[in-house]
Nucleic acid binder design. Structure first.
Lengths: 267, 267
DNA sequence: AGAAGGACCAGTGGTCCGTA
DNA sequence: AGAAGGACCAGTGGTCCGTA
């Protein structure tokens, strides 16, 4: 492999991974097949557009053909129930707040599955890194667009950038304080809160962790091997920054009785 | 400063730096003034274009005004000699191969000056990093476009990306083996070689260094504090990669008598 | 209403090539 | 000819908003 002239994509182990992941899925292995089929359609479209752009200016050719082996399932399973038209848009089932260990039922996905997707992305990154090293190309240290593209080509079409970025801080809490994360999940499940509410609630304990560690959220991410490969989400960074300002202002006014406009303690 | 609503640019210390740098310049302090004037013209142009693009779609406003204090010199010094038209294009004097410590004469710049530019970029990066930290924004670890833009705003219009990227590996040799670098400069000066030839010659000793250290050129750059802020140049990376392949093939064929198509030893 | 993700956009890394 | 650098381009990080 790798030297076979194709894109260096080794499908087999990846596909296996995908199968493993299915355990937590909604329709007992249905959705990921459907999603893969959908993904392929989109990919062709994208490639067509890309090729068109190439023609506009002197093509920088190199690497574009793909290992077209994702097949196996073809026409089948395009539609899930017995319902509507032939080519309905398929999406992943929405997440619900589940306790640790709990598998979501019905057309839902649980939070263990969500976190599992982050681990899968890590595996894809490691593969991309290995390929880059073998080829002597520059080697990503983070989950980049390249990694998402690789995941898609490898058949994991249920992984996409907006989704992964959306929940990064939830995964961060899971990494940095699993007990706290678990407690939060149980509390929000009990209260019947939706995923959005749970997601919002994940910020606060993270900011508290940052407060205890000198407010350097980048350092906190980088110190954790599974978290270091993810970009710090903008909103989390902003929250840490403004909380630090608040804390500094409070501390300084409690000492000096001065106004909020005082300078920050260090920097 | 920093909280003044402007771009957070503190001009003063930067301008001072610029003055320092002038020592190695060609026209005894002339060129950098000229270059600054030229730079301002271009900047206005760029801003105009940017503003036009904004109007096309719902402006993401935020941060665009500039501390317009670069002035001081205005109409004066647009032209260097007494020569041609009013607004001739000005460029930096070309580099020549100089020995360590030697100041270039005539309309030339020497290699100490070249390396000094890398140190200046480092200073600009550090300033950009400090501003980012104060604001709680993401903090560059490398000399990025943002840093080049900052340098230009700060009046160092003689710094530009193509130039700095062009000679990065020469600076790398200077950092990693100053004695070797100095010897190479003396040899090429003596032989009367031009800058291009010297530049080309800098690759080989770097590849030799990489060979001694397991071929990991990224690790070599990252291990050196002044070098770590520069991207590894593509060509240097490629040279290391293909030399490693050659070395591996030679080693394996000398042992097994096998063909060049053998696999690499590790990976 | 709540949520998933295609697709867009501003600004990046990289360097070509029209310029002097 | 040898060299400096404006300006372009493909692909990035980031996330909005049309979709289901």
């Amino acid at each position: 492999m790798v030297k076979n002239g194709k894109v260096g994509l080794s499908e087999e182990p990846v596909q296996q991974q995908e199968r493993e992941a299915a355990g937590s899925g909604g329709g007992g292995g249905t959705w990921e097949v459907v999603a893969a089929a959908d993904g392929r359609g989109r990919m062709k479209q994208r490639r067509r557009k890309k090729a068109a752009e190439r023609e506009k200016r002197g093509a920088s050719a190199e690497e574009d053909d793909e290992t077209e082996e994702l097949g196996q399932e073809d026409e089948e399973n395009i539609n899930e129930g017995g319902g509507g038209g032939v080519s309905e848009r398929q999406r992943e089932h929405p997440f619900i707040v589940t306790e640790p260990g709990e598998v979501a039922r019905g057309k839902k996905n649980g939070l263990d599955y969500l976190f599992h997707l982050y681990e899968q992305c890590r595996d894809f990154l490691i593969q991309v890194q290995n390929i880059a090293k073998e080829r002597g190309e520059k080697c990503p240290t983070k989950v980049t667009n390249q990694v998402f593209r690789y995941a898609k080509k490898a058949g994991a079409s249920y992984i996409n950038k907006p989704k992964m970025r959306h929940y990064v801080h939830c995964y961060a809490l899971h990494c940095l304080d699993e007990d706290g994360s678990n407690a939060l999940r149980r509390a929000f499940k009990e209260r019947g809160e939706n995923v959005g509410a749970w997601r919002q609630a994940c910020y606060k304990p993270l900011v508290a962790i940052a407060a205890r560690q000198g407010w350097d959220i980048d350092a906190i991410f980088n110190a954790h091997p599974r978290l270091a490969i993810w970009y710090v989400p903008t909103k989390l960074r902003q929250l840490c920054h403004s909380e630090r300002s608040n804390a500094a202002a409070a501390a300084s006014s409690s000492v000096s009785g001065g106004g909020v406009a005082d300078h920050l303690p260090h920097f």
